[in-house]
Amino acid sequence: MKVQIEGNFYIESDDREFTLKEYTGKISKPAEGKTEGVPLFKTHGYFSDVQGAAHKFLKLKIGSSEAKNLLQLIADVESIREMIRKQIDF
């Protein structure tokens, strides 16, 4: 599974874990015998459930908030949570 949360952020999963990744906007050099490279991602963590990955995404988004007071920060957090809820059914 690979779910785009927002912009360059994705949650991927396999049979053991969920991974929060961010596309860097870069493409790797093609491997020997290949004509194209693959997109490069920054991994923000590995989680046992999708809620853990979503929580990490929330923390990253809060860290980039430009809120100037507590009321603005609370509004930002609620907005981000609502966006996550729409993307991932909790």
Rank of each mutant, 00 (worst) to 15 (best):
M1S: 02
M1W: 01
K2E: 11
K2V: 03
V3R: 04
V3W: 01
V3S: 02
V3E: 01
Q4L: 02
Q4C: 07
I5Q: 00
I5W: 01
I5T: 01
E6I: 02
G7S: 10
G7I: 00
G7Q: 10
G7A: 06
G7H: 09
N8E: 13
N8S: 14
N8L: 07
N8R: 15
F9V: 06
F9A: 07
F9R: 12
F9Q: 01
Y10Q: 09
Y10R: 09
Y10N: 11
I11L: 11
I11T: 07
E12T: 13
E12S: 11
E12I: 10
E12D: 14
E12H: 10
D14N: 15
D14R: 02
D15M: 10
D15R: 11
D15L: 13
R16D: 09
R16C: 02
R16T: 07
E17I: 08
F18W: 13
F18A: 12
F18E: 11
F18M: 13
T19V: 13
T19W: 04
L20W: 08
L20Y: 02
L20T: 10
L20H: 02
L20D: 09
K21T: 14
K21P: 07
K21G: 04
K21M: 12
E22T: 03
E22L: 11
E22W: 08
Y23M: 07
Y23C: 09
Y23F: 15
Y23Q: 10
T24K: 07
T24I: 08
T24G: 07
T24M: 11
T24D: 06
G25Q: 09
G25N: 12
G25C: 06
G25F: 09
G25Y: 06
K26V: 04
K26H: 11
K26W: 06
K26C: 06
K26A: 08
K26M: 10
I27N: 05
I27G: 01
I27M: 13
I27V: 14
S28Q: 04
K29R: 10
K29G: 04
K29L: 09
P30G: 04
P30E: 00
A31I: 00
A31K: 15
E32D: 10
E32F: 12
E32S: 13
K34P: 04
T35W: 00
T35E: 03
T35F: 00
G37W: 03
G37T: 03
G37Y: 04
G37V: 02
G37Q: 02
G37R: 04
G37D: 06
G37L: 01
V38K: 15
V38D: 03
V38Q: 13
P39Y: 00
L40M: 07
K42W: 03
K42S: 05
K42C: 01
K42H: 05
K42R: 13
T43K: 12
T43L: 03
T43C: 09
T43R: 07
T43E: 04
T43D: 05
H44S: 08
H44L: 09
H44Y: 14
H44G: 11
H44M: 07
G45H: 05
G45F: 06
G45N: 07
G45Q: 03
G45S: 09
Y46H: 15
Y46G: 14
F47M: 12
F47W: 12
S48F: 14
S48C: 10
S48G: 15
